[in-house]
Design a protein around this nucleic acid. Structure first.
Lengths: 340, 340
DNA sequence: TTGAAAGCGATACCAC
DNA sequence: GTGGTATCGCTTTCAA
């Protein structure tokens, strides 16, 4: 009895054919006569043969692997999209190599380099802004890439996402329509995060167009954690600033804000309106229910899989830009008209 | 100018040394004289050389890759643990191959097979119950495996987790102490899910010991979705069943339950107490705050990385079983004494 | 349709 | 310390 794992050669010998034939049986079964194919398959099963991925990748120059680097896997924000990306890949017998950057472009570069070394056939990133070397390496290694959670019709790289600035505008517009004039913002850290910047920029622009202003002292940045957000908002309030609505950079921040307001016994939306961003499944059960932007995470994940698999199969490297809707979901945290 | 990517050979030629030396410079720099090393590194940088993962894996029989198959990446339940697993691996220059099973042991088997083909050096799974072939394959390929989210001191495989049955007992005990006698359960689908079964079994046993009974008609199974849970609980209530507390299989189910109760205008915990499981970061901001079990997701992830890296490095294959605490967090959804 | 054989790009053993 | 080279397991021309 052989002690180590059977190889293609072992199968070939056992079936009385060449390794080339066995390889074909596995990869292009149609090209092998049925009688032979049966013999080979029998041998494969009898020996419990499983192909060796690395050898395969080395010889074929295809790893059947897609890499993704996301800011964090820690919460549901990106997890949902990644879930569908992974499912899409799995159906095509591709595997997902997942890494996280902790919202740092330098860490992202490091992870991208590592993934490229691993020989990924395609790459998924979040946002459009990346270390220049990231794009350079991807390009040099001919690895197709698609940016998610962002849409820019002039981007030099493929993207499947939504317009973050427009989404920010929608929120601002809604609040202004509800009578709010003094609006605060609790944003995620904006450095290295183009989505966060664009969202707030959308808000700022809309307000400006309406002759309003996003006052710098009403804008706070903090890590994407409910706790940090809670602190930030509490500070803002105890500092005596006046505002009737607070726009949060994502649902987690909004959750933290709501929890702070509850402790301060400030009624929502009566005294203060709150908005989130992402429409996480779980926040649907919240009370008061949260007004937020419905981010098409699932579709971004699914489409990213389809897009990359297609690039790999056809060798096509054209830039594709897909804009998905990101609609405002008006719910209880903003459903009261504010009168000045 | 060379059009394709530089290889070890190219670097060797450029530096005027052998491929063996270049390889050493990369893997055991200490064994190479400094002068030579500098020359080689200069060549590496000049050519923009990056090692080829597959070739490396083929030659060294190490892929520097760990596989994980989790039930779903869709929500925060496992994402948090995976996040820290990934961080731990990344620090050691290992990469995470992530797949999901959709809570099906057959799908899990499929994914495990795929990952093994990819040549993973270690494997992370959730729960102890897996398709027998999973263990068999892992064993045959000598891939060390660790089961997370489960602890069993007699397990034949390494595990890092907590005692699900004991956690279930804690919940039941707390509720009984608060005066509850009629308890309902909304559980996740129990087939293919040992954690769900154990939790409920813990509840059942504790009640039995106290001369109480977990009535079959008060137990509902549903997918882990807030919506499904909401429906299940509404059904239970409109069917006219009597119970003063409902134990939910995880926080997502609890969230759904709370949302149903809000719509039915049933006060929590006054008329009905509710418990969850997992202590997701985001639910901390909920109101009323949720009584739940604090699952050590972060530590499981971190320790899994450490454990597997150690197995790989030392070749040690001893079974390791780590029990982590999973404590009850008593909060508002159960903080009222129930009088019969 | 099938087989022989040349790589794919590194590692690691064995000499020197 | 350093270099030569067999080897890892599979894919893929090219001929037959």
């Amino acid at each position: 009895m052989r002690s180590s794992k059977p190889t293609l050669q072992d199968v070939a010998t056992a079936a009385g054919v060449s390794t080339a034939t066995v390889s074909r049986c596995i990869n292009q079964p149609a090209q092998v006569k049925e009688t032979l194919r049966d013999k080979v398959n029998e041998a494969i099963n009898r020996l419990g043969y499983a192909p060796h991925g690395a050898a395969r990748a080395l010889a074929s120059r295809r790893s059947h692997t897609i890499g993704a680097v996301i800011p964090t896997i820690d919460n549901g924000i990106f997890a949902n999209g990644i879930h569908y990306l992974q499912r899409g890949l799995s159906e095509a017998n591709f595997t997902l190599l997942l890494a996280s950057s902790n919202y740092s472009l330098d860490e992202e570069l490091h992870e991208v380099r590592s993934l490229i070394t691993r020989g990924i056939d395609g790459m998924v990133l979040i946002g459009e802004e990346h270390h220049p070397e990231v794009y350079e390496m991807l390009d040099r290694h001919q690895v197709p890439v698609v940016n998610l959670w962002t849409y820019n019709n002039q981007s030099l790289h493929s993207c499947i996402g939504f317009d973050n600035a427009a989404a920010g505008r929608k929120i601002a517009e809604h609040l202004v329509n509800m009578g709010h004039r003094d609006i605060a913002v609790i944003s995620g850290i904006q450095i290295d995060n183009d989505r966060a910047r664009e969202r707030i920029e959308g808000v700022r622009q809309y307000l400006q167009e309406k002759g309003l202003e996003l006052k710098p002292e009403l804008v706070r940045e903090c890590r994407y954690s409910a706790e940090q957000s809670s602190l930030a908002l509490t500070e803002l309030i105890t500092a005596g600033h006046h505002f009737s609505a607070v726009i949060c950079g994502n649902d987690i921040l909004a959750l933290g804000a709501l929890s702070a307001l509850r402790q301060l016994e400030i009624p929502v939306p009566k005294a203060l309106a709150v908005t989130g961003f992402d429409n996480l499944e779980i926040i649907a059960a919240l009370s008061p229910s949260l007004t937020t932007i419905d981010v098409p995470a699932r579709r971004m994940g699914t489409l990213a899989a389809t897009y990359l698999l297609n690039c790999i199969q056809t060798g096509n490297r054209d830039i594709t830009r897909v804009q998905l809707p990101a609609d405002l979901k008006v719910r209880e945290t903003t459903n009261t008209v504010h009168s000045t």
